[in-house]
Design a binder for these strands. Structure first.
Length: 288
DNA sequence: ATGGCCGACGAAGTCGGA
């Protein structure tokens, strides 16, 4: 910090405002009209996307470039897929992370001995001095599913990779759909989730161990109602306020002190053909 | 109050999501 202060005094470090956002769009091709409208309205410097459901080759780059956004993306079509959009530069992109486990193989669909397959759930890049990760944590499906063990293993491996990343990049932001509600306050009715994924002690412990590396779980304000980021499409859950906060922005201590406004853009969940998730927007000060 | 919605894939019905 003293070194940074000295560089700042010498004029080689400048503080700048970064509007950083994360949004599980549930298919970028299907969501492009909403995403383009949202970018033009909210004007984030950086947007992390999850569930893009599009390969890197088919990524709709041209329409985003017209709004001034460069991108890095990784995807497999059909499901999963992550990306980062930035209008303040993108450097040093990495896909996945060391030690990342693969998804369980459905026995009926694969020959015996088939190796678990890596999914496209993590991408990182440096944007204006901030190391940004866009993460899509596995769902887990049910407590007795192999996919639940995969979720926990994936989070444990992520923690190990992030521990190394944090020592190299003090200004570090972990953004995305964590598929974990950090506390009972983060679901509309804790009783309704007993026996379900997203709220178990194991999942919350895995998230807590990530936080204990030195991150703050930014608490965004709600535009209306409780500060949830996800509402199921079914049964009018959104209009009944029956949601969850599972999309998170975790900021390293070097960034957490510079947070200005932080909010969940509930309006993006309204209207025609919305994603089932709302974007989380965080204004922060970073230094270059 | 997860049967009930939505998207992908592919061209009808499943799967996955959380």
């Amino acid at each position: 910090m003293q070194a940074r202060a000295a560089r700042f005094a010498a004029g080689r470090v400048s503080m700048h405002r970064v509007r950083l956002a994360t949004w599980n769009v549930n298919s970028l091709p299907a969501r492009m009209p909403r995403v383009l409208e949202w970018l033009a309205r909210v004007q984030p410097e950086v947007l992390c996307l999850q569930e893009t459901k599009v390969t890197a080759e088919a990524f709709p780059a041209a329409e985003l470039e017209r709004l001034g956004y460069a991108h890095v993306a990784d995807g497999e079509g059909g499901r999963n897929g992550v990306a980062i959009l930035s209008r303040v530069g993108l450097e040093g992109a990495t896909r996945g992370f060391p030690g990342e486990p693969g998804a369980p193989i459905t026995v009926e669909k694969a020959p015996a001995g088939t190796a678990p397959s890596l999914e496209r759930r993590a991408i990182a890049a440096t944007c204006a001095g901030v190391r940004v990760w866009s993460l899509y944590v596995p769902n887990g499906r049910s407590l007795d599913s192999p996919h639940f063990a995969y979720k926990l293993a994936w989070l444990a491996a992520l923690r190990a990779a992030i521990e190394a990343e944090l020592s190299a990049c003090p200004q570090l932001a972990l953004c995305g759909d964590f598929n974990v509600a950090p506390s009972d306050r983060d679901v509309w009715d804790p009783a309704a989730f007993i026996g379900s994924t997203h709220v178990t002690a194991e999942e919350r412990a895995a998230l807590e161990q990530l936080l204990q590396l030195g991150f703050t779980d930014v608490q965004p304000r709600a535009l209306k109602g409780a500060p949830f980021t996800y509402w199921d499409y079914r049964a009018g859950m959104f209009h009944r306020g029956m949601g969850m906060r599972i999309d998170l922005v975790l900021l390293s201590h070097a960034l957490a002190g510079g947070v200005g406004d932080a909010y969940i853009d509930r309006d993006a969940r309204k209207g025609s053909k919305p994603s089932d998730h709302a974007p989380v927007v965080v204004d922060l000060d970073a230094s270059v």
